[in-house]
């Protein structure tokens, strides 16, 4: 069998590399297939759209990935985003919009609602973290409970006079500008969303790879017992993970409001499943300790390309579900094969 050296000087077989990277091949194959069916797919606009659509999802997936990495599993993702979206949207409506939630509210500087939801989510995330780490509630239960609480809370906030249970619209043009505007570089338009996501990715990368907290996160996920013996404050690390994931959700929620132009109590519904699926496709281990920023970005991109590409060529909607399901299954099968017994 053919062998090559990897960057660490270990020899690995080409077959092994293929097995590990096959998910990228799948992505490539999908793109090629879409292009064959619809050559117009090959355009800068589509690339821009795909990246812009992925932008908030990447932020969300990174947050969900952090939680997976410490052997958690966050089911409250979508509802946390929903709450942050509803609260921030209600404070970011145009002053002259007819159906304002707070008709007499003066225009607030953008930073006020953003900080408010960031702090709110940080507190809620800390509570989840405490439940998981100190009270030893299994993550899936703690976040499920949080999911219900958050949905109730955001619905109560949302569904009240004067215009209750209506999507909160009339979002300030500044916010819409962030969500849909772009930076012009010659002929190229770079959406602000992509730039914001890129900055956040860099920050997260630094945190994961260059800080003590990041290393502790991998350690806690890799082997909590060993981490404890190594002097890592396992509980604190878990709490910080849940809290910072929540902060990312809050930021993503504000960006979603800008992107969509409205918010309701259904905003964010089901995002946790997309996020977890993207993480899994991107190589984050469901049993903790393994995962990278790059992998998660690729995972999200694959998901978006499927969504966007299938809609672009006009595949029957029911088939789109089947294709998505198959891709997730494929990703996990490949992932499992890496650790399979017969080495």
């Amino acid at each position: 069998m053919e062998k090559i050296k990897n960057k660490y000087g270990e020899s690995i077989s080409i077959k092994q590399i293929l097995a590990e990277k096959i998910i990228y091949l799948v992505l490539l194959l999908l793109i090629v297939l879409v292009i064959i069916i619809e050559p117009k797919f090959l355009s800068f606009t589509n690339l821009k759209n795909i990246c812009a659509q992925s932008a908030t999802k990447i932020i969300i997936a990174l947050a969900a990935g952090m939680v997976l990495m410490v052997r958690g599993c966050d089911l409250s993702t979508g509802r946390m985003i929903g709450l942050a979206a509803v609260v921030s949207a209600s404070l970011m409506q145009e002053v002259n919009y007819a159906y304002r939630m707070y008709p007499n509210l003066k225009e607030l500087p953008l930073i006020v609602p953003v900080l408010l939801v960031v702090v709110l989510c940080a507190i809620l995330g800390t509570l989840t973290g405490i439940a998981v780490s100190l009270l030893k509630v299994p993550p899936i239960i703690a976040t499920l409970a949080m999911q219900l609480i958050l949905y109730g809370a955001s619905s109560i906030y949302f569904d009240r006079p004067p215009y209750g249970a209506q999507p909160i619209g009339g979002i300030s043009s500044k916010v819409i500008g962030i969500g849909t505007g772009y930076f012009k570089l010659g002929n190229i338009q770079i959406p602000y969303l992509i730039m914001i996501a890129a900055v956040i990715c860099v920050i997260i990368w630094i945190i994961w790879n260059k800080t003590k907290f990041g290393k502790y996160m991998y350690a806690v996920g890799g082997n909590p017992e060993a981490a404890k013996v190594s002097g890592v404050n396992v509980e604190l690390t878990q709490i910080i993970v849940y809290a910072s994931a929540a902060v990312l959700y809050a930021i993503a929620a504000v960006l979603e409001v800008g992107r969509i132009g409205s918010a309701s109590n259904t905003t964010g519904n089901g995002y946790e499943m997309d996020a977890i699926a993207a993480c899994v496709i991107g190589g984050v281990s469901m049993s903790g300790g393994i995962g990278s920023v790059g992998g998660i970005i690729i995972g999200v991109l694959i998901f978006t390309v499927i969504n966007y590409g299938l809609a672009f060529i006009g595949v029957n909607m029911y088939w789109q579900y089947i294709v998505k399901g198959l891709i997730i299954l494929l990703a996990v099968v490949i992932d499992m094969r890496k650790f399979a017994k017969r080495k």
């Binding site: 991998y218 350690a219 890799g222 082997n223 017992e225 404890k228 300790g289």
Partner: peptide, 9 residues
Amino acid sequence: RVDGIFADL
């Protein structure tokens, strides 16, 4: 294995 190594790292 239990509380020494981080096997995957």
